[in-house]
């Protein structure tokens, strides 16, 4: 019992100290704005490179950048991080959204508490955020990818997709759009199978190996998550099939060797470092009030003046890496 009493005294003591800090109110006051930025998940090279750009911008703006996100794949985790940030008190929250239906409630709650909310990389429902830093719409991604596949197939023939996990929300949205684009523009192209890779390169490799044998007529493999691009490319390379090409959505560092081998035709992506950089600039401008309805251009450090369309900040259209330009990019 004495121990318990001691513990309570200790608790009371430290709480006194804690209350002082908690009383500081929203955000770090001495250090400028507190920008809380969340990737879809941690431990993913794609988001690691976004983070380098984000930190660069935070340094330039003298803002405090909190970078955290789920380490597990459960969709509830993003909500819990946002809840914590609401409690903590930050000036602006920037989220790369995994599940837009699930997260919109908690983002609206953040806005009702006076916290600015932007989304980046993947959007939520429009009324749940102030701005979306748009590097590519699902439609734009689908058009670009389907366009590459059509070019490789001559507009006619079979192709297959290697996706992330079967439940990955973004990939499923892209697939839906790809099917729409096929129906509209490329009726003679057929998507014969969609195989999961669970974001594991080895799994993508093995699924592609099997796929090529089960569907020998498939001439294009489209890998729509970043570990799947090198996985599918390696499988095609090892099979010795020179009539099969890979295209997809991936990082230039992963793609480079395969682009040069000629196995990988093209990898579609945007500059992830710039995406992180622009997100922090957008967050800062929204929180300081510089970016508000009616503004059509946002000064963003080394990126210059960036176009704003309505409630979207436009990074640019998706970029296609090929063997000719890939050496200019390192991320």
């Amino acid at each position: 019992m004495r121990r318990l009493g001691g513990g309570l005294t200790l608790l009371a003591l430290v709480l006194g100290a804690g209350a002082c800090r908690g009383g500081g109110g929203a955000g770090g006051t001495e250090q400028g704005q507190t920008i809380a930025m969340m990737p879809k998940n941690k431990g993913n090279p794609y988001f690691a490179s976004c983070r380098t750009g984000a930190e660069e911008a935070a340094k330039e703006l003298k803002a405090r950048l909190l970078w955290d996100g789920p380490t597990e794949t459960d969709p509830a985790k993003q909500n819990e991080v946002v809840e914590a940030w609401i409690t903590r008190g930050v000036d602006v929250i920037a989220v790369s959204v995994e599940n837009k239906e699930a997260i919109s409630t908690v983002l609206r709650k953040a806005r009702s508490r006076g916290i600015k909310v932007i989304t980046w990389d993947a959007d939520t429902e429009p009324d749940a955020r102030d701005y979306f830093v748009n590097q590519a719409t699902p439609r734009g991604i689908a058009e670009t990818l389907a366009g590459h596949a059509a070019r490789l197939l001559g507009g006619k023939g079979e192709f297959a997709v290697i996706t992330a996990s079967l439940t990955a929300a973004n990939q499923n949205e892209w697939l839906r759009q790809i099917r729409l684009v096929l129906a509209e523009r490329y009726p003679e192209m057929k998507l014969v199978d969609v195989r999961p890779s669970d974001d594991d390169r080895k799994r993508a490799f093995e699924e592609t190996q099997t796929l090529l044998k089960v569907h020998p007529q498939v001439k294009v493999v489209m890998a729509i998550c970043s570990p799947a691009v090198p996985g599918a490319s390696e499988a095609v390379k090892q099979s010795g099939r020179t009539d099969v090409h890979v295209t997809g959505l991936g990082l230039p560092n992963d793609a480079r060797p395969y682009l040069k081998d000629g196995v990988l035709d093209s990898a579609v992506l945007w500059n992830t470092k710039d995406l992180g950089y622009l997100t922090v600039y957008t967050a800062h401008a929204v929180a300081s009030g510089a970016l508000k309805p009616g503004v059509s251009s946002l000064p963003a450090g080394r990126l210059g003046a960036v176009k704003v369309e309505g409630d979207q900040v436009i990074l640019g259209t998706p970029f296609t890496f090929t063997k000719d330009n890939v050496d200019q990019f390192h991320f």
């Binding site: 431990g43 993913n44 669970d198 594991d200 390169r201 080895k202 490799f205 570990p227 090198p230 390696e234 992963d254 060797p257």
Partner: peptide, 11 residues
């Protein structure tokens, strides 16, 4: 079997 190493493999 590959040319580089994925760090979060083996899940």
């Amino acid at each position: 079997q590959f040319i580089d190493v994925q760090t979060n493999s083996g899940v």
